[in-house]
Nucleic acid binder design. Structure first.
Length: 509
RNA sequence: GGCUCCGUGGCCAAGUGGCUAAGGCAGCGGAUUGCAAAUCCGCCAUCACCGGUUCGAAUCCGGUCGGAGCCUCCA
């Protein structure tokens, strides 16, 4: 039984779907007015993993991540850069997609853009007016919060408490907490025709319209960052439920925000931007140290797998404090997996990455009767699945992966499989490795071989063979001075030598 | 001011009423090794503080201190 924490009820609930075997997930994606930073990647990685796990459990999952490509910030950016809003949105969407790809996020089924759903948005707005939940004033349309008795149930606020200054449109609103569904055009802003004149959609309505179009009036999971609970999701929920007269989603899931390690405030948050504007000259340095910029750099230096693993080691609802040191540590931790995969390949002559994971939980059971080793593997697998069943506890689940690695290494050591092995032993080893393959695939890690370290080309390989041969000769004749000089010299240039029973190996790093 | 959340070993981090408080990084001791590397074995916490509830609490309740988020655009 899978349990999911629901922001609406503030507790974990048994996971049940609207439609047998099917799951619809809608995740609020970015407003594409600037390059994405690492904080933007948290949600996609988590919900990519959620989909993988639900699919593993036999559900047919549809994951939708929207792109907001019309909004105030985009309009400002477009004036700033002298480019069309469309051109900026396109550029930043490409950047976003490139980053998702590098982080192994490949489970998204639909990426609707607000500008492609203007018709649906207008229809939704009309529906709300017809039902008495919205009103139009001078070309603007506002949602009438007072007409919605349940307003505030997601963020636990009363309509009064929810009202801010009311913004620039305050004078035209009935109440300061009312929010725009449709904004009348100003100056040279991009606009579309509507029953209320030229204008553009408000921020929240696009998600209500697009989720309805793709997933229906009521779907299973709605995700986003914790910062979206109010006002965005509160307003979305109000719009959709007033319009349809039924629950919009079963489970509201919110991920914790990423925080910079060297100062307060979330990555990409308000203080970030204030600092950036005040100290434009050192922007790069500040942004880099806070992870708010240079996501491409981070991916370049650390690799997507390390970043993904770093995020998944923490529970999705907690705050993650970003630091490059944390990323480094995640990288060190991943090394033990890579070492084991190499060991497996030396023993079986087959490639870990060419193994096909079992797509379904029920097919990934392993026959462990009479074999203590496989029983231990099965126990770790069981523990892993229990962690994941419990509100997608990826942090707990990774510990089972490490346990699995140790258990497999111990088995290899105890039976000295690197020297000789029986067919039974090889079969057991393979089963344990396939289990590791299945479980890590759920987290979206180890899906493909890591890129070859820079400098590892054919010539290097030949030179290394030569050096290793020379060193082996030196060792055989007990000339350890020469042998160690070779090894230490290589260490200095970043090459590690490993003397194993079946020969000497080397690696960069 | 209102609404949330968090405080577990040197660092990161699971666990939210009951077997010996996961796992990772770092460190220490041992096996292995010519010495290393890799691997394995072992060691390293009573859970911010105070009080309460309970047969029993890191886990529930109250308070104190400390930190974070939202209330305005935000993943």
């Amino acid at each position: 039984m899978i349990r999911v924490y629901n922001t609406l009820s503030k507790q974990k609930e048994e996971f049940q779907t609207n439609e047998e075997g099917k799951v619809g997930i809608y995740l609020c994606g970015p407003t594409v007015y600037d390059k994405s930073h690492i904080g933007h990647m948290v949600g996609p990685i988590i919900f990519d993993t959620v989909k993988r796990y639900l699919s593993f459990n036999g559900y047919d999952v549809t994951l939708v991540v929207n792109i907001t490509d019309v909004d105030d910030k985009l309009i400002m950016k477009s004036r700033e850069r002298g480019l069309s809003m469309d051109a900026i949105a396109k550029e930043m969407t490409e950047d976003y997609l490139k980053n998702l790809n590098a982080l192994g996020v490949d489970q998204i089924d639909h990426m609707p853009k607000a500008t492609e759903y203007i018709g649906e948005i207008i229809q939704f707005t009309k529906d709300l007016i017809d039902k008495g939940f919205a009103y139009d004033v001078d070309g603007d349309v506002f949602f009438d919060v007072a007409a919605n008795a349940c307003y505030g149930k997601l963020s636990n606020r009363s309509a009064d408490a929810a009202q801010g200054e009311g913004g620039e449109a305050a004078s035209r609103k009935k109440s300061a907490s009312d929010f725009a569904l449709w904004k009348s055009v100003k100056d040279d802003e991009p606009s579309w025709d509507s029953p209320w004149g030229k204008g553009r959609p408000g921020w929240h309505i696009e998600c209500s319209a697009m989720s309805r179009s793709i997933l229906g009036e009521s779907f299973d999971i709605h995700g986003g960052g914790l910062d979206l609970v109010f006002p965005h999701h509160e307003n979305e929920l109000a719009q959709s439920e007033c319009c349809h007269g039924k629950p919009m989603v079963r489970y509201w899931m919110h991920n914790g925000l990423m925080r910079a390690g060297d100062s307060t405030g979330k990555v990409g948050g308000r203080s970030d931007r204030e600092q950036d504007s005040e100290q434009a000259t050192v922007e790069t340095k500040i942004s880099r140290s806070k992870g708010a910029g240079g996501l491409a750099d981070l991916i370049e230096t650390h690799g997507g797998e390390r970043i993904r693993f770093f995020l998944l080691r923490t529970h999705y609802r907690s705050t993650i404090v970003f630091s490059e040191a944390g990323l480094e540590e995640a990288g060190t931790a991943l090394e033990s997996f890579y070492r084991l995969f190499e060991r497996y390949e030396r023993i079986t002559k087959s490639d870990f990455y060419s193994l096909t994971p079992n797509p379904l939980r029920e097919h990934s059971n392993l026959p462990a009767e009479g074999c203590e080793f496989l029983q231990q593997v099965a126990a770790h697998r069981q523990s892993y699945l229990e962690h994941m069943d419990d509100d997608f506890n990826t942090g707990g689940a990774t510990s089972d992966l490490f346990d699995l690695v140790r258990t497999i290494n111990r088995f290899i050591d105890q039976h000295d499989l690197e020297s000789s092995s029986s067919e039974e032993q090889l079969a057991a080893l393979s089963m344990s490795i396939v289990t590791l393959r299945d479980l890590s695939a759920i987290l979206g890690i180890f899906t493909s071989a890591p890129a070859e370290a820079a400098g590892n080309d054919a010539l290097t390989g030949q030179l290394m063979e030569l050096l290793i041969a020379l060193r082996s000769e030196a060792r055989e004749s007990k000339n350890f001075e020469i042998a160690d000089r070779i090894r230490d010299g290589l260490a200095e240039i970043g090459v590690t030598i490993e003397d194993r029973k079946d020969g000497t190996g080397w690696r960069i790093g």
